[in-house]
């Protein structure tokens, strides 16, 4: 098992299986959390074309959330061309989807989180150097956690 940001990936004989990290109370709609986590996993190449997504029911049961919300996320990802519906299997990562090759593309996905953190740091009156230090520490902690 390894960790990408906050989405757990379990290795199984059929390839990686995704389980989402859903935080119902962090101010981001649940469907958007799912969309963004899939976008990140695809951009990083950890989810390759053909990889199966867990069923709507599985995700809804696991997190005690509304299945319609999960379904909405999958439909949006399908509309974006990242997922496709395969008969008998459910949602899979669409053929032809390639990881974001350039670091700049992956950074673009990180930008909203950075903007939010920058705004909160300013509101809290934290000076930029201290904020940068804190981000560096968070990165190190995350990497060591992921290595476990």
């Amino acid at each position: 098992m390894y960790c990408d940001g906050n989405t757990l990936m379990h290795m199984s004989p059929l390839g990686p299986r995704v389980s989402f990290d859903i935080q119902p109370h962090d101010g981001t709609p649940i469907y958007r959390q799912v969309v963004e986590q899939v976008q990140r996993l695809v951009a990083s190449g950890r989810l390759a074309p053909g990889a199966e997504m867990p069923s709507v029911r599985t995700v809804a049961e696991a997190h005690a959330v509304n299945p319609m919300t999960v379904s909405k996320a999958y439909s949006l990802l399908e509309a974006q061309g990242l997922l496709s519906r395969r008969r008998g299997i459910g949602m899979v990562v669409a053929e032809g989807v390639t990881p974001a090759a350039r670091p700049a593309e992956r950074l673009a996905l990180l930008q909203p989180a950075l903007d939010a953190a920058a705004r909160e740091a300013r509101q809290l009156g934290i000076d930029p150097t201290a904020a940068l230090d804190a981000f560096e520490r968070a990165l190190c902690q995350d990497i060591s956690k992921a290595a476990l």
């Binding site: 119902p24 109370h25 005690a64 959330v65 509304n66 319609m68 919300t69």
Partner: peptide, 9 residues
């Protein structure tokens, strides 16, 4: 309310 936040549309 935390329960509702999980499930409501």
């Amino acid at each position: 309310l935390a329960d509702l936040e999980r499930i409501v549309s």
